[in-house]
Nucleic acid binder design. Structure first.
Lengths: 342, 342
DNA sequence: GTGAAAGCGCTAACAA
DNA sequence: TTGTTAGCGCTTTCAC
């Protein structure tokens, strides 16, 4: 059995109060008792139980992280950053992959509440309802990252998605493209919507008209992106450039292009979003819009810890400007189907 | 404040025992009381506190997962699999990335113990000492995945690394390569050692001699792999094929090749290990040794849960046969430096 | 400087 | 069928 505070107290011939005080560095204890007790703790290999501590109201030192999918490198990198910084603050993190599924979200949030996590970080695109109904009333500290919930007042750290969409489209336009497709995740995700808006704005600012045919939606799996992009490539007059709203989708687009006998970037340019490791290693390396993932992770957790331990009330909204990272997947149009009409 | 079992009892006009029994479906309770209490619970939005429950000895329903790095897709995919299956069993998982650093390992294990996790899954290559000294005596249920600790008696699920190394080398040999380099992670990782052994065995079985020049070590970062591989490519008589002991390293090798003006697979063949998403999307797609990641994750957690809830004592050692997945990064040697000597 | 005792929210004998 | 009571391991007044 794990030794308890009683064991230590007995061995040291003091009361549990004394031991507790020494553990927490509170009250005044003679240097000798201190030494003696410390020694016994060492000897017994005593570690205070955090669950007992938690029960007395000191918190569990645990936070929940809700993401869509840990297998998506963007979220894995984000989770890693959150985990690291969390540990630095003495918090561990429970990661829950929701697959952007409302039901799972609900279950996970309930479970995290039962476990009495001290706070939650939400990176899933959905669940606004759940958050509003389950989390806000319970007074659970929360922070949003890489996702926006317009109706919710909470600390938020995200990239300017509109600017990102604008950047991506502008890059393509400046290369000379006029037939620019956009592949987004479902539009109930605010970030998708914003990226689309940015793209449309860029088009408009350059006197290009937006065609609904050039917008497709997909969930964020590579295969799905590939499938959707294929629909374009099977028909004449397809886009000469495609902006995909995340790297995974962009990879799918490139695969579809390859399958259709098109070269990237000669025949079709592709730009992604996120700047995950995938962008660096894909074939060709992917031009993409970079989110400073690590930085964002650090920021949310710093803030969340602040509200947990210092009871910070003020909610900020941190919007970071994304950057265009040009690699090899974009180039000027080659003139393939140059006579095509938009 | 969150409602407690007392609130429910008071509102329902019963004792807390009754409420507790209803929560746990124990003892016999009249259908009416049951209904009444359930209704109150609903109304109060009552959720039993798992930390209080844990304190009574029912476990925390939490397990710890120790991996080297969550940002490495292999471990992200593994973690996702563990997480999913864990949730199915009603367990949540705390992930700790150790960077294969002994000190961190120690700290994380101590923290997990303080949090009274019900068990731990270890996927880090190091920490055998810590495991032996901290974990085994404490009687904490543990399971090893994708890593071996020869001195430790614990449930283990892993791929036959020796066979994997053998497969990789044989594939290269059969393509006609004779100058085959191997880039491994540090050899204190048993898996690296085994993969190297498999490679050497394959060489021997085909009357090829092993040259120490053709073995390099690196940690598992892409850049490091690239750096190491560059050393080969800067000199004449470099390998015409390289087996890297994980996909990340293999990517690094391909990047180094490209930088050196070599084409993959025409000038140099590369095979990786793990078959992560990286292998599918790299340029060119990577021939690699596949570990059934999802399956392995499911298996460990199934077992661990079994020892936690059913007190299963028997320790198995599940060794899975890896498979060669041929993609585009390997081909017959082209004759570049064909006169080079081994 | 040190300790007795109450309490955190829950479970599990044991009574009634 | 329901309730009383004693813990689980710790923190925290409040006395001594």
């Amino acid at each position: 059995m794990k030794p308890t505070i009683y064991d230590v107290a007995r061995e040291a011939g003091v009361s549990i109060t004394t031991v507790s005080k020494i553990i927490n560095g509170k009250g005044r204890i003679s240097i000798e008792t201190q030494k003696k007790v410390l020694h016994i703790m060492e000897q017994l290999n005593y570690q205070p139980s955090l669950v007992a501590t938690a029960l007395t109201g000191k918190g569990t030192r645990t936070i929940g992280l809700l993401i869509p999918d840990l297998a998506n490198p963007f979220f894995a990198e984000l989770a890693r950053s959150v985990e690291d910084r969390g540990h630095e603050h003495g918090f561990s993190v429970i990661i829950c992959s929701s697959d952007n599924n409302e039901e799972k979200m609900k279950r996970y949030i309930a479970m995290l509440q039962q476990k009495c996590v001290d706070g939650m970080i939400i990176a899933t695109g959905i669940g606004e309802q759940v958050v509003e109904q389950q989390l806000l009333p319970s007074n659970m500290p929360i922070a949003l990252i890489a996702r926006d919930m317009p109706g919710i007042s909470a600390q938020t750290v995200l990239v300017d998605d509109f600017a990102g969409g604008y950047l991506a489209a502008t890059h393509l336009i400046e290369l000379g493209h006029t037939r620019i497709g956009i592949l987004t995740e479902p539009l109930h995700l605010v970030s998708s919507l914003e990226r689309l808006r940015g793209y449309r704005q860029a088009l408009a600012d350059h006197q290009l008209s937006f065609s609904a045919d050039f917008h497709k939606q997909s969930d964020s799996r590579i295969e799905k992106g590939k499938e959707k992009a294929s629909e374009w490539f099977q028909r004449p007059g397809s886009p000469t450039a495609i902006f995909a709203s995340n790297d995974l989708l962009a990879i799918g687009v490139m695969q579809a292009a390859r399958d259709a006998g098109l070269r990237v970037p000669e025949d079709v340019s592709v730009v992604g979003f996120d700047n995950t490791i995938l962008a660096e290693i894909s074939d060709p390396p992917l031009t993409t819009i970079a989110q400073p993932i690590e930085h964002m992770g650090h920021q949310v957790i710093d803030y969340l810890v602040q509200v947990i331990v210092e009871d910070e009330k003020e909610k900020q909204r941190v919007v970071i400007q994304p950057e265009l990272v040009v690699r090899k997947s974009t180039a000027a149009p080659s003139g393939r189907e140059g006579s095509g009409c938009i």
